[in-house]
Design a protein around this nucleic acid. Structure first.
Lengths: 235, 235
DNA sequence: CGCATTAATTGTAAAATAAACACTTAAATT
DNA sequence: AATTTAAGTGTTTATTTTACAATTAATGCG
């Protein structure tokens, strides 16, 4: 078999920035690294790409190892290729961000992989350039969420408007007028109001909504402006 | 030195989708591949990442080889990692798109590298998955240009409003009302009207403008809406 | 030299969208 | 029954976007 024999070959890794939302707080899934180098330090979930799998397959495999979940919302973000980003051996990392419903497996996670949900506001020091990856991921979901309805991926199938607003406010680090917010969100036609309420958050209770999946998939690429002033994305 | 000894290593390539605009037509810079496999077939400009350079450095090096230019607008786009995208040996390609002022070196290009400017509407069959890269690049610049003033990178330092409008219309494959277009563009405050005219395109001549570089760099991240209906980005 | 041609330039009114703003209501608790 | 707490809801104003066509500058031709 013909080969490009003179060329250097590189280690390829995939790193996943996994976001979750518990109805109150935006969180990242981090692990205590189980092997050297940087054993026991906080890290994103990552792993080496195998010879037989594509990048997307690698990302999905790694995410499944971490969370047990398949079919998670996963999007390639950026490839990090500074020559000395891994002190042991040069490794190029293809980063992905994932948005998952935190409730779907709050438990199995930490048991199997020493993983933990950490509030985005209190991310510890991370290994290598993972800090930089997290920063870019925050920026990326803000950017994308300003234009597309991706944040629903973070919510359970039934959710309330106050929860949704809370999520948007967390992602954009802004407070939004609730009258205008509900107008905008409902105007998308993406939400179906259910007849029962979530009584957990208040005495009165808040009506549950669910996504109109038809419209959700149809309009996913469309621009949907939920955020008042997109200039908040500037950073 | 410690190594991740058990892991597979991969060839890493960089491929550049280079856009140019001659005042009339949007074009891509393509080359006739000089080596096997697929010798003499049309291809994007690419090359293998070297052991001592970062991904960005590789992209800049390759772009310089092709165009002789440095300091070109270059942005990492996406990493392609299907296992058999290169039939010879598995290669992961990190793609970049570049926006250049076509006039800066219309000539030296084709001489040195068998490169040619090809109208975007008439791209020939390309090797490997380069077709897919081009499609993604078209989509990416459309997306980005709808929100940020990147298209100025395609224009010479002095340009006219009709040229600029033509560029936007080419990128978005749409026609825009010229009164509304000039209002929007001028409202950004990014343009400085010069006192002389370009007499090439019409009898009356069109005034030259240049970028206010201060504002350009300051507002680059800001959202600038020049495109009437961003839903045209849906595809 | 005036006339015809061609593309550049410019403004306004109507419609749509976004922003600002506060009271009422449902349900649980005391 | 009264109190507490958060959910739910509408209107007015301001801003932005859209639709739409006549005038002007310069050239070349008769």
């Amino acid at each position: 078999m013909l080969k490009y024999s003179k060329q250097t070959r590189f280690l390829l890794a995939v790193d996943c920035i996994v976001f979750g939302f518990d109805g109150e707080t935006l969180k990242l899934l981090l692990i205590k690294r189980a092997f050297n180098p940087e054993k026991d330090k906080w890290s994103l979930m990552g792993g080496f790409v195998q010879a037989t799998e594509s990048l997307d397959q690698a990302a999905n495999r790694i995410l499944k190892q971490l969370t047990g979940l398949e079919g998670v919302y996963l999007e390639q973000m950026y490839s990090f290729g500074e020559t000395s980003r891994d002190p042991i051996e040069r490794t190029v990392s293809v980063s992905y961000f994932a948005l998952i419903d935190i409730h779907k497996y709050e438990k199995q996670i930490s048991a199997d992989f020493h993983a933990e949900w950490v509030p985005l506001k209190r991310i510890p020091k991370l290994i290598f350039d993972h800090q930089e990856m997290v920063e870019l991921a925050k920026k990326s979901i803000r950017y994308k969420a300003a234009l597309h309805p991706i944040l629903f991926e973070l919510l359970p199938s039934r959710f309330t408007l106050p929860q949704l607003q809370n999520l948007y406010e967390s992602v954009f680090n802004a407070s939004i007028d609730k009258r205008n917010f509900s107008k905008r969100v409902l105007a998308t036609g993406l939400l179906i109001k259910l007849t029962d309420k979530d009584k957990a958050g208040s005495k009165r209770g808040a009506f549950y909504y669910q996504l109109n999946m038809q419209k959700y998939y149809a309009n996913f690429q469309a621009f949907i402006n939920i955020i008042p002033n997109p200039d908040s994305l500037q950073n």
